[in-house]
Simulated scan of single mutants.
Amino acid sequence: MMKTRIDVSPEMIAFIGDGMVPCEDWPDTSVGFSYLFSPAICAFHTDTDACDDLTAADIVFVVKREACTRTFGMLPDAPATWHMPNEMRSIALAVRDCRLAGLAAATLRVAKSIELLCVTFEQLGDGSMIPADGTGVLTASEARRIAAARDLIDKRWNEKLTLETISRACGINRAQLTRGFRSMFAMSVADAIADRRLGGARQMLLATDLPVSAIGYKCGYLNNASFTRAFSRRFGQAPTQLRNTRLAA
C-alpha cells in the first residue's frame, strides 16, 4: 500500500494517508517534513533516502533543499522532532481529511500543503516550536515547561540556579524536570548550566580584561582551581592559556 501522492510543484511533493512513501521522481537534494497526529508531532528529515522512516507519518512533504533556503532563508541544522502546535495540526487535518473529490480535492490539498509548510517555517523562525523528546513520553505541556527551563538557563546562567529554583520558576516538579530535561536535551540540568557558564566565561576571557579569578567567580565558581579544572576539561586549555593566546594576537 502506498500513500497518495500530490505534486504540489516541481520542487515539492506531498504524500498523504497510510502506507509507504514511493521514492520515485523526487526533486534533487531533497529534505523531508513529516506530520503525525498520534502523538501530534512533526519532524524534519535530512535523509529522505530512508523512506522507511517516513512510513508511519500521516503526511510527508519532500521539498528541494534549495527551494527551502531560497523561499524561507533557513533550514534546521539537523534532523529534529517537535510537538505540533494546534494551528499546524488544524491545517494538517485539512490536508489529510479533505472531503472534496477529484480536481477540487487535489487543488485544496495543494493549497493547504503550501500553507502547512509556510506555517512550519514560520514557527521554526520565531522559536515557538517545542522540541519533542526522543521517547514520545512527554506531553506538549511538559515539553513546553522543560523548554522554558532550558531558556531560563540560557538567559540567567550567571545567577545561582538550582533544580528547586528552576522547577519552581517553570511550574514543574524536580523529578519531571530531571527526567524530561535529559530526555529532550541528552544532558542533565547541571551539565547544561555548567556548559552555559563556561561558554560565558570564554566570552569574557576573550572580550574583557577582567582577572581570570574574577571571571570564574562571576560564572559561579567559588575558587580559581575548580574554575580552571572545569574550563580545561571543556575547552582543552586553561583560562590563562586562552587569555594569553588573545593577548599574543
Rank of each mutant, 00 (worst) to 15 (best):
K155D: 11
D18M: 08
V63C: 03
A106G: 13
M129R: 05
A190Q: 12
A101K: 12
T71L: 14
H83D: 03
Q123F: 10
C170L: 05
A56C: 13
R174M: 07
P211C: 07
A225R: 14
P76Y: 04
L206K: 10
D195I: 07
L36Y: 15
N173G: 00
L163Q: 11
R5G: 00
R234T: 11
T71V: 13
L205F: 01
P76T: 04
S141N: 07
S9L: 08
R246Y: 09
G17L: 08
C219F: 02
A50K: 10
R197F: 07
A149K: 06
R243P: 09
S188C: 11
R145C: 11
L36C: 13
I91M: 02
I172N: 05
P39T: 10
S188M: 08
M129T: 06
G134D: 04
L177Y: 00
A57N: 04
G134A: 05
R96D: 12
P27C: 02
K218C: 14
P39R: 00
F181E: 04
D151P: 01
Q237T: 12
L93P: 08
A143C: 03
S183G: 03
D133W: 06
A78F: 15
T4Y: 09
F15S: 00
L108C: 10
G180P: 00
S90T: 15
R246C: 14
P22R: 05
I114F: 14
R5M: 07
A50I: 00
T178M: 14
G32N: 02
A238D: 13
T165V: 12
W26D: 07
A78Q: 15
A80W: 11
P10H: 07
A67N: 05
M187C: 15
R70Y: 10
R145N: 13
P27W: 06
A57P: 03
A50C: 05
A94S: 13
I6A: 01
F235G: 01
V119W: 06
F37C: 08
I146N: 01
D53M: 11
R156H: 15
F61T: 04
R196Y: 02
A201R: 00
C23P: 11
E164W: 04
G136D: 05
L247F: 12
A104W: 09
A14C: 02
A186H: 14
S113N: 08
M204C: 11
D53R: 14
Q237D: 08
C23Q: 10
E11G: 08
P10V: 00
L198N: 06
R179S: 04
I6G: 00
A92R: 01
K160W: 08
D58V: 05
V119L: 11
E11M: 05
H45V: 09
K218Q: 15
V63G: 01
T48Q: 04
S113K: 07
S90K: 14
F121C: 01
S188E: 03
M1P: 04
D25K: 10
P39C: 04
P211N: 12
A186S: 14
G127W: 08
D52V: 14
G236V: 02
I13M: 00
A43L: 05
